[in-house]
Design a protein around this nucleic acid. Structure first.
Ligand code: SF4
Ligand code: SF4
Lengths: 151, 151
DNA sequence: TCCAATCGGACGGATTTGGTCCGATTGGCA
DNA sequence: TGCCAATCGGACCAAATCCGTCCGATTGGA
């Protein structure tokens, strides 16, 4: 239950890029210096984020990267899925690749779908704009199940 | 963002064990046959679950395993943490092992704590008794953030 | 026309994970 | 009371994935 460090670094870099403001260009080298991520790793992340459509990259001298959308329309789920692939707790929840031998007789499979939606909701509820906002209010997101739904 | 297959299998086995009822003994071989998990893997899971205190194991002929607590007091989080270790999305959230070089200047670290609590809540809200209940009501657990908390 | 800067993808080493095996221990039975 | 069979417990090894690094392709400017 730990997301890859690549995805973690991607979030850090996207947060740094969001601080540049709308349309503010940056590049992999600059972001690496600001965040502390190793430069080669930062380059790789830029590639993946660009191919996922989260940032727009421009080649050549004076090029760089730029957020493809506004910061408040990019969620944590978008970033994580761009790097780590789809958020699927188990193999059966993932749409593709039905390669679980137990899938036929497994009786807990339907329940995983519920949990998977819950964690995805937790990731989708946080936008990049919230992350970029520096004053960390000690707000606690209450995502516990409503009393009674599980009766 | 995918939990290990060991943890997945552990949940399946625990669910099968819970169906035996309170005090109903079983063993690794029987559970492997019921669930389809390879027998050696099932044995390993029994070891981990026993050392975590979720099941009580008895050696010798006619021995076996038994749920240590009632099914409604064991949550998904307990099972997953017993096999996969603590639920910590990032290295800095984990209590031990502060081995992230960016930890000093990282500005998104506090936010991860919030998300981590959210996913842990999603796992803690599902009990083993719920999983063992077979009729899968198409209930949807609403764990989206309360409107307004993120203003 | 040449050059410098930047993204893009391919390669290799390393850590973790999953699977398998055999030994230690205990209760039952003759 | 001694032996045996059944079961858990932990150690070992192969495979896969992941991380980090390097070099080539592409573009704009001087
Ligand atoms: S079918 Fe069952 S064992 Fe297979 S991935 Fe889904 S929950 Fe896990
Ligand atoms: S300190 Fe920042 S980079 Fe390091 S693990 Fe925490 S969130 Fe990730």
């Amino acid at each position: 239950m730990r997301l890859s460090s690549l995805a973690d670094y991607a979030v850090v870099m996207m947060t740094a890029a969001a601080r540049e403001g709308a349309g503010g260009r940056s590049n992999a080298t600059l972001l690496a210096g600001q965040t502390g991520v190793p430069l080669p790793t930062a380059q790789k992340l830029v590639s993946r984020l660009a191919s996922a459509g989260l940032i727009e990259s421009t080649r050549g001298t004076g090029g760089g990267i730029r957020l493809a959308r506004d910061a408040d329309t990019i969620s944590l789920a978008d970033i994580v899925e761009a790097v780590d692939g789809p958020i699927a707790l188990t193999a059966c929840v993932d749409g593709a690749a039905h390669d679980c031998g137990l899938e036929m007789q497994c009786r807990v499979r339907p329940h995983w779908h519920v949990v998977n939606q819950a964690v995805r909701a937790a990731f989708s509820g946080v936008t990049l704009a919230t992350l970029a906002a520096d004053p960390v209010e000690s707000q606690v997101m209450d995502v516990s199940p409503r009393p009674g739904v599980f009766a």
